[in-house]
Design a protein around this nucleic acid. Structure first.
Lengths: 182, 182
DNA sequence: TTTACTATAGAACAAAATGTTCGGTATCTC
DNA sequence: GAGATACCGAACATTTTGTTCTATAGTAAA
């Protein structure tokens, strides 16, 4: 990718993240973004069709990396079938704690539901395909979809609570909390 | 309240709900609302400062009633202290199932997060003040806030799943699902 | 270095949405 | 019936959106 394109794209993302972390998504205007990113109006629209597409691409950049890693490395995928079936979640908590791309700020700011929704949709497929190894006996009579949704939701809500709490608990502690209630 | 005011207010809410159930909140314009409600532009702004305040008042109208009932009638408040500590949740599911004000449609449509966020904030205070009676032994070592958040979140997510599923399960069945995972 | 290509700046523009104002009419309250 | 109040509807300024254009500057390949 052209260096100019890359710089512009990064400037837009940076400005957008800064704005997101202290004001409502709906009230952010394209004018504000380009002013803060210090680029021309036409340039913005050359990169992103609308403000919503900008958000979508930001989500992909934030989470694809996270889930790609987990799917790519075989070392992670097997964890469901071995006895240490908590390591995926611990791994995710650690990953989030590293706070690449201000991920943590975005997960605890006013606009967090924008990102958590995207996060959950990714998580649902992951949990769905690995439910059997997570299942406990006491859950036998519950609908499959309900259980998948419950586990993914609980993880997302735990992440949200943890981020709101400024990550006072360590990844290991919050993983234990999560596993206790699952 | 003046009959004229009431009619206008109802027409606005009705139009707004119809629009919410088949298009995104952000893309709904004041122009669309007043056209569908068949009222004048100035009249809309005489009732609601902005589209966001309209949403806020709709939420209050939908949920205050629900929670007021539970707080008002003494017959509900005691349930935490008696042995049948599931009846509050069952009661809430039944209430939602009655589907006053298209509550169910709003909880399962594209815009459901708008309502579920409000719902959760109400629920948090309710759960917080009654946590002791809900608590199980195995949860002893978990942070108080975490538990409160977990129970409220799980209830909200269960309601969402149930509404998305067109309420195929009865209030009793979904209450059991909820209590099983709590 | 020269040449062709492409991204950007900056300004101008139309279209759409927001929120306000005002005079006239209908409806409610007393 | 009289005064108060809500509504209509049209006009209006303002803001935001998304497009179009030309000139300029950075990039990549010869």
């Amino acid at each position: 990718m052209d260096r100019r394109q890359r710089k512009t794209r990064d400037a837009i993302f940076k400005a957008f993240i800064e704005l997101l972390s202290h004001k409502d998504f709906a009230s952010i205007t394209v004018g504000e973004i380009i002013e803060r990113a210090d680029i021309g109006r036409a340039t913005f629209y050359a990169h992103f069709e609308t403000k919503d597409y900008l958000l979508k691409e930001l989500c992909e950049e934030l989470f694809c990396h996270l889930f790609d890693t987990d799917k790519g490395e075989k070392g992670h995928h097997h964890i469901f079938s071995c006895d240490a079936n908590d390591s995926l979640f611990l791994h995710l908590f650690k990953h989030i704690a590293k706070n690449d791309n201000q991920l943590l700020e975005l997960l605890s700011c006013e606009n967090n539901q924008l990102f958590l929704r995207y996060f959950k949709s990714q998580l649902l497929t992951l949990v769905d395909s690995n439910l059997e190894t997570l299942k406990k006996e006491k859950y036998d009579e519950l609908p499959h979809d309900f259980l998948v949704n419950h586990i993914a939701s609980t993880f997302v809500e735990t992440v949200k609570w943890w981020a709101d709490d400024k990550c006072r608990l360590s990844p290991e502690q919050i993983t234990n909390c999560f596993l206790s209630v699952i």
